[in-house]
Amino acid sequence: MRKIFSLIILIILALGVYICISEIPFGKPGTAVGNYYIEKGIEETGAVNIVTSIVLNYRGFDTLGEVTILFLASLGLGAILATVQNKTRGVITPPSLILTTACRFLFPFILMFGAYIFLHGHLTPGGGFQGGAIIASGFLLRYLGCPQKRIRQSSFVAIESLGGIAFIIIGLLGFTAGGFFLFNFLPKGVANTLLSAGIIPLIYIAIGLKVGAEMAGIIDTLIEES
């Protein structure tokens, strides 16, 4: 009964949405702001990767918020799971030697790749989030491959917090130097070089570490509890 009812509603909704959307012309995006970014982006921010310049400079405040959301996710998960007390650990079958060795071997490379991505965020596709996620996947691999080895939760937490604080401090430095929060106060440098784009690489380092720590922390909490 309920299923039929919801199906009918869904069909009606789908029909309605279809009619609504069919009147919206897709593929012709309004680009009021976009064109400006493409034209002036490199000049104003010094970042070759326009996406990065938008994410970290034009809309840096959003990024701060997004970083906070991730922080929240790990914090909330920790808060909820901290009180649940059922540590009935299943029997862990030890992974094979080949897997363990491969994991150990791969782990630093993955970390390095992640670091590369967030360091070059202003030059090539990628950035803090992507780099952080890759770092976290390195940790995931490590947890799967060598389940005995653990990293202290608190170090993840410390890195998370420090990353967030670093972001804010950079923003506040911009505030003191230029009068605007998150103002790009450092010299823009020459485009297409590593040391360019002012505060963008610095923030990306902070974000990369933070996101990596957060993701790894979430996985760690979950595995810890399972």
């Binding site: 990065t52 990628g126 992507q130 996620a133 890759i134 996947s137 995931l140 996985i219 979950l222």
Partner: peptide
């Protein structure tokens, strides 16, 4: 950029979390 994020987060990490 989005592709990288989607691949690493959506495909890898989220799935891992779900599996756990």
């Amino acid at each position: 950029d989005v592709a990288m994020a989607e691949a690493s987060i959506g495909a890898a990490l989220v799935t891992a979390i779900l599996v756990i």
